[in-house]
Simulated assay, not measured.
Amino acid sequence: MREDKIAILSAQETHVDMDKLNRISKQFEKQLLIYNSADPTSLNGKGVSIILNKKYTHWKDATFTDIVPGRALMLQLPWGDRGTLNCLAVYAPNDPGENACFWKSLTTRWRKNCLPNLDIVLGYFNIVEDSLDRHPARADPNAAVEALQEFKTLSLLSDGWR
């Protein structure tokens, strides 16, 4: 992050317990702020982290919200003249049915709680919207893809890869 001047980094499948997280945070406390969302039902279980480079961000003013523990973590960060940058880091389930339910639950939560429009959603989605994004090409189940697309529509997000 220092050498490449990366301001915000997201990590999925972190499998970090509190002791390990505290050791890593202490080791890099001058350079990085590390916030981890872990699955509370399993020790050293699935998780998602957002790491801020203290040199390039207003890290002291960052707000983190556990949307789905171990699966979805929101960052609200002051970002220059544009105001607040709203990011969501996700680690979506691998099972297609669970994946569709995950995106649908996020959509419901955003609508019900009037959560802010997102500028960036990053992470490991465990699906692709277009079969050409896989090699060899294969389509993911429509229910999961449509649920992801509906969630993206809430914030008028588009695929940055494309």
Results as ranks from 00 to 15, higher is better:
Val121Lys: 07
Gln31Met: 15
Phe151Glu: 13
Leu85Ala: 11
Cys114Tyr: 10
Ser42Ala: 02
Val128Thr: 14
Phe151Lys: 08
Pro40Asp: 08
Gly123Gln: 12
Asp95Val: 14
Ser158Phe: 15
Pro136Ala: 00
Ala143Asp: 04
Phe102His: 06
Lys55Gln: 11
Ser131Asp: 07
Cys114Gly: 07
Ser37Lys: 04
Asp66Val: 00
Asp4Gly: 04
Arg2Ala: 14
Asn99Asp: 10
Glu98Met: 01
Gly70Ser: 04
Gly70Cys: 02
Ala72Pro: 00
Pro136Val: 00
Ile50Val: 13
Glu98Trp: 07
Phe151His: 08
Asn22Asp: 03
Gly47Arg: 04
Gly45Trp: 10
Glu3Gly: 12
Leu118Val: 05
Asn126Trp: 15
Ile8Thr: 06
Ala143Met: 02
Ala89Ile: 03
Arg138Met: 11
Ala89Arg: 07
Thr65Leu: 00
Lys55Glu: 13
Pro40His: 09
Ala62Cys: 12
Thr84Gln: 00
Lys20Ile: 05
Asp159Asn: 11
Thr63Gly: 09
Asp95Trp: 14
Trp161Tyr: 15
Ile50Met: 09
Asp119Gln: 04
Lys104Phe: 13
Gln27Cys: 11
Thr63Gln: 04
Glu150Cys: 10
Asp81Leu: 12
Ser131Asn: 10
His58Gly: 09
Asn113Tyr: 09
Ile120Lys: 08
Ala38Cys: 15
Ala144His: 14
Trp79Pro: 02
Gly45Thr: 02
Gly45Tyr: 03
Ser155Thr: 05
Gly47Asn: 08
Ala139Arg: 12
Gln27Ser: 13
Gly160Lys: 08
Ala11Leu: 15
Tyr124His: 12
Leu73Gly: 03
Leu73Pro: 03
Met18Gly: 01
Asp140Ser: 13
Pro96Met: 01
Glu129Phe: 00
Arg138Trp: 06
Gly45His: 00
Phe151Tyr: 14
Pro96Arg: 03
Tyr91Cys: 06
Leu148Asn: 14
Val16Asn: 10
Lys30Arg: 00
Asn142Phe: 00
Gly70Lys: 01
Ser49Trp: 00
Leu156Arg: 15
Thr108Gly: 01
Met18Phe: 02
Leu9Ser: 05
Asn126Thr: 11
Leu21Cys: 12
Gly47Met: 07
Asn53Thr: 04
Leu157Arg: 08
Gly97Phe: 04
Asp119Gly: 11
Ala147Cys: 14
Ala137Cys: 10
Glu13Ile: 06
Asp81Asn: 09
Ala38Leu: 12
Ala89Thr: 03
Ser131Trp: 00
Gly97Thr: 10
Glu129Lys: 02
Trp110His: 11
Ser25Asp: 00
Cys87His: 07
Asp39Gly: 04
Ala137Gln: 11
Thr107Arg: 12
Asp39Leu: 09
Ser10Glu: 10
Tyr35Val: 08
Lys104Tyr: 09
Ala72Trp: 01
Leu77Phe: 01
Asp4His: 07
